[in-house]
Amino acid sequence: MDKLDTITNYVKSQDLASKAKMTSSHQVTYEMFTNESKSLAQIAKERDITEGTALGHLYKASQEGFKIDWLEFVTLDEIDTIEKAIKTVRKRIPKDETFRMKFVYEFLDEKMSYVKLRAAVAYRKENE
């Protein structure tokens, strides 16, 4: 057995690949949010990231199967409003233009935060 095989076997035996995943940036954010009950603002401040980045981490964690209660960020009424706005905006943008959440934000007269917009989309993806 050569050195590479020895290392590969060791990594597999210690399950180091999954342990490395567990300490990824989005996992740290998820643990702070769920285990420590910290808000996005607190997480952002402590980790020196934006709230949008922290929310992105939670979204990524949810895509990996971790449960997020998106209703902590947005109400069902707000989700309905956001969904209607998304549908309207999608119909209005030219076919050659890429859809951006900024269009929805502006359509809603900047009254819904990007956190609410992203949480609404995440909520619907999980509850389709």
Rank of each mutant, 00 (worst) to 15 (best):
D2Q: 14
L4K: 09
L4P: 07
D5L: 07
T6F: 14
T8P: 00
N9D: 15
V11K: 06
V11A: 05
A20E: 07
M22I: 00
M22Y: 06
Q27R: 13
V28M: 08
E31Q: 08
M32C: 03
M32Y: 04
N35D: 12
S37W: 00
S39F: 15
S39W: 08
Q42A: 14
I43Q: 05
K45C: 05
K45D: 07
E46S: 15
T50A: 01
T50F: 01
T50Y: 04
E51H: 05
A54N: 07
L55K: 10
L58S: 07
K60I: 10
A61R: 06
A61C: 04
A61E: 03
S62E: 13
S62C: 11
Q63N: 12
G65S: 01
G65Y: 04
F66Y: 15
W70R: 01
W70Y: 15
W70A: 03
F73K: 09
F73S: 12
E78S: 13
I82L: 08
E83W: 01
I86K: 09
K87W: 00
V89S: 07
V89D: 09
V89T: 12
I93Y: 03
D96F: 10
F99P: 04
R100K: 12
M101V: 08
D109Q: 15
M112D: 00
S113K: 10
S113Y: 01
S113L: 08
V115R: 08
V115I: 15
K116S: 04
R118P: 04
A120F: 04
V121C: 02
R124D: 05
K125S: 08
